[in-house]
Computed example of a mutant assay.
Amino acid sequence: MNARAPMPARVLKRADLPALIGQELACSDWFLIDQARIQAFADVTLDQQWIHTDPERAAASPFGGTIAHGFLSLSLVPHFMQELIAFEGVAYGLNYGLNRVRFPSPLRAGSHVRAHITLGGVEQIEGGAQLSWQVLIEARDLSKPVCVAEMLTRVMWQAADS
């Protein structure tokens, strides 16, 4: 499916974060979204809508085939983040939420996607920082992205760095 050697993560240092705001920090490799992955997502989320799970019926739809759930695209964000971004001096990090999510284009089964990660902001919190990330997921053959999200994470500094 997506067998390849892991990419080295970009390691971010606490002191460098403010200067990185507004910069694209990473772009992933292409990642296949096939029908098996779409079906597995449908099974886990109990969203069995035919446009995702019935290739024959979906072939007659305006999309010409099945499309991935928008939330499948969104659910890949933590994978891309972990693959691409690492921190120096962090005890742990947490997903904190999302401010805005849009799915501008439908994602056809068999497409390849990749993520672009931009640091949107840094807010100091007790013991760490809250980071906002602009995440854009594009498909290889589409002019508009399939997912655009502002994600919030919290990183907590190791005790020696507090």
Rank of each mutant, 00 (worst) to 15 (best):
L20P: 00
S73Q: 08
D141V: 11
D54F: 12
M156D: 01
A109S: 06
E123I: 11
V77G: 00
H52Y: 03
D43G: 09
H116D: 05
R37K: 12
V122C: 05
T53P: 02
P6G: 11
P145L: 06
N99P: 04
F71Y: 09
A19I: 08
P78R: 15
E24I: 14
S28C: 13
H116T: 06
P6N: 12
I117G: 00
Q23T: 14
E126R: 12
D54C: 14
A59F: 03
P6K: 15
Q23P: 04
S75A: 14
I137E: 01
P6T: 13
R4A: 10
K144V: 06
D141K: 14
A109G: 04
E56Y: 03
F31T: 00
L152E: 02
Q49H: 13
L98F: 15
C27L: 08
N2Y: 13
S28G: 12
A42R: 04
N95T: 08
D34K: 02
F41W: 04
L72T: 02
T53D: 01
P104V: 10
F80L: 04
L152S: 03
Q35W: 01
F63L: 02
M151D: 00
M1A: 05
E150P: 02
S132E: 10
P62R: 14
E126T: 10
E24Y: 14
G128I: 02
Q82P: 00
D141M: 07
I21L: 07
